[in-house]
Write a protein that binds this DNA or RNA. Structure first.
Lengths: 415, 415
DNA sequence: GCGATCTTGTTCGTTTAGCGAACTAATTCC
DNA sequence: GGAATTAGTTCGCTAAACGAACAAGATCGC
């Protein structure tokens, strides 16, 4: 029930059905590999003849490759019948198709060389440079040597870059990244020129959502409506509706960090008071633990001065320190309040929480769940699963990978 | 950048391009009528030959009709050149295609006989019956006589019904409508059987959003990302992303009424405290004017007992009564706070506000705008237009019409 | 007034993608 | 070893897009 955009539509040509079916087929291989042509024909309710031609096209362009014929009967998924000719299995080519993922954070910048399936090849780090040009020079140099040392100069298909701030993805401009002090910085063309590779830039929580859509372990679990809530120095979200990231009219959808949840709450870095972020960010938890109200001055002092981090607070809470436990629990309570807003407003199938706080999940979960349920309107909404991102999964870097790979697997736009 | 749903996809067939292009063409006629075949060919960047065959198809099935040849030069839109053969203009057939729109509200139920373009033919009202079966009997009888007296028995293409509560649109079940006291009431099949017409049921704010997508005056103004906020006895919203209504996993998206905005706010009918609805609904404004805190008991008393309505408060405010003005202004302030959450979370291109309060727009707008801007993160977000639904436009009934007409014009789903 | 020019709308032959039936290949069962 | 069964390919048919040619209706210039 989508209305056609009569100002900017894509009309169908004679080649459109093939493009559509080709892409469906490619995605079926992606999610069910190893899979045979005959099985694809059954799943698509299409003749085997067409599958042959579509697969040949994909083989020729190298998106897919043929495995050996499944020799012995002991297959992981048992064939319907044990009789008849054995199928030749198909796989998507991921091994020798590489991506460079970049995660720019306040303190350090991460570079990952990875293949299309998300398998890590090399990971390196350096202190973030805050001058855009200096950072781009450094990055371009490191990308070059990274590709050279791994003999991957020809097989890298693009660079995905994740930034803590709002991004005009189409244009590749960073609109506002307060942590880096950037405003209206054109980033894409600079890196693309320096490296000769296509570059994609995206906001961090949005990228995490993309990683969840495209690289979730057990890919086709079929969850197409969810919100990824990223809790770190800031609090942001990636909203996914029908398998598609919602970016908003001005590219700033998902900024849940600055929704007001308490009129009398502490002043936030954004200037308002009572923001969700001022109650649930790592800084807020830290400040609460130290007994401060979070004001910009205090926040900066905490960032620079005391070497204490949230990880330390979590550590102390695990050891049983009551003040640390209380600080985390209160963060959980406010986070639950924030999630209840998301549940009421968007009714997602699932909410995924990422960030350092997931390391203390068993400490914060009860508070989150209690508060979210208390505010839910229906039983189904109250039962909305809230799931922590598994530790060590590098969601931002995986999101950067997805920035490059997703366009090759996405549905062709029609209508 | 949508991910293909490998569990439930629509593969393209040989006929798909035609379906897609036919629908694009139909929508172009809808939004640019009168329009010629040659002009359609130019807009679609397609040969005139195909346009002829597509138009013939639409003419045959009666979706479109030919007007007279544009005889004299004085056309509303001046042709590119004054020379050459005159075009025959095309129009979508709306006059003799009828819809029955039904709006069930707490006090009264409205029935409207309308054509596809939204032109009203007959409007009638009766006191709402709270027993589902009794209401359906009454409705079926009235629909029958309405169609008979207007000689429209053959030309009615469906019934659209709008309900104050959550609706499983696919199944036609009302999940929860507290104002009517309904829970899990199957409504569609009952009315469809009684009338022999296809029936669509939808939640009121969502229907208002649909009306805005499909029947907005000056249709193709190109706004495809907006939120319709309906402020009446309750507060709800219809969220539209890329020309498509977001319904959520459990059909309850858009329930902005019960997001918490103040921890210490008054208790709401839903059981929680500090809900947006408890601060901005008509009842809340009324209670504030009367000097009460809104509790369920007070609310019920206000509904039944005193004959005072929001309209009265607005009237008194217009006459200059300070307490009435203050009550409305505070409603505006809280509403602006609520809108700032929507702006941050979804970054729509525009927000439309509907409900009785729009009659006092010039009194509430400054407060709304000030509060919304104060919370916005970017200048663009702060400039998000907040527009009142024009008075007397019957948005819920127009939404009910759209429920029937929209599927005929919507983009065919592919992929 | 008449031909040149221009625009609209139709027709028709060409190309190509989907579709289904027939065919080959490989394997198991009896 | 032949019947049965499944996988994969080939090939002819059909129908839709595409583009060029054509007919129809209008204006302009001489």
């Amino acid at each position: 029930m989508r209305k056609i955009n009569t100002r900017d539509f894509r009309r169908a040509t004679r080649a459109t059905p093939r493009q559509v079916n080709r892409q469906i087929l490619l995605n079926l291989v992606r999610e069910h590999q190893p899979i045979s042509r005959a099985d694809l024909a059954r799943r698509m309710r299409i003749g085997r003849g067409i599958v042959t031609t579509l697969v040949n096209e994909l083989l020729e362009e190298g998106s897919v490759y043929e495995g050996a014929v499944a020799d012995p009967p002991p297959l992981p998924s048992p064939p319907l019948s044990t009789r008849g000719r054995r199928p030749t299995m198909l796989y998507v080519r991921t091994r020798d198709r590489l991506v460079v993922a970049i995660d720019v954070r306040f303190s350090r910048t991460y570079l990952l060389l990875s293949d299309f399936s998300g398998t890590q090849i090399a990971l390196e780090t350096f202190g973030t440079l805050f001058k855009p040009d200096a950072l781009l020079d450094e990055l371009a140099g490191r990308v070059r040597t990274l590709l050279r040392t791994h003999g991957a100069e020809g097989s890298c298909e693009g660079i995905g870059m994740v930034v803590p701030g709002m991004v005009d993805r189409g244009g590749g401009r960073v609109l506002n990244a307060p942590q880096l002090g950037w405003r209206d910085v054109e980033i894409r063309s600079g890196l693309a020129q320096r490296t000769g590779l296509p570059v994609h830039v995206e906001n961090a929580p949005a990228a995490c959502a993309l990683a969840t859509i495209w690289l979730r372990p057990g890919g086709g679990s079929g969850i197409r409506d969810f919100v990824y809530v990223a809790v770190s120095d800031g609090v942001g979200a990636g909203v996914v509706v029908d398998g598609q990231l919602v970016r908003g009219h001005g590219h700033t959808a998902g900024e849940f960090g600055h929704i007001p949840i308490r009129a009398d709450g502490p002043r936030c870095l954004c200037g308002s008071a009572g923001c969700l972020e001022a109650h649930t960010s790592n800084l807020a938890t830290l400040a609460r633990y130290l007994g401060h109200e979070l004001s910009p001055a205090v926040a900066r002092e905490l960032l620079r001065g005391s070497g204490l981090t949230v990880e330390d607070v979590i550590h102390r809470a695990r050891r049983g320190e009551p003040r640390a436990r209380a600080a985390l629990e209160e963060t959980g309570r406010y986070l639950g309040l924030g999630l209840s807003i998301i549940i009421n407003a968007l009714n997602p199938e699932q909410i995924i929480v990422g960030g350092e706080i997931t390391a203390a999940w068993n400490l914060v979960e009860p508070a989150i769940r209690a508060e979210a349920q208390r505010r839910a309107l229906t039983q189904e909404a109250a039962a909305t699963p809230v799931i922590p991102e598994p530790p060590g999964s590098l969601p931002r870097l995986r999101g950067a990978i997805a920035l490059v790979t997703a366009p090759l697997f996405a549905a062709p736009q029609v209508g």
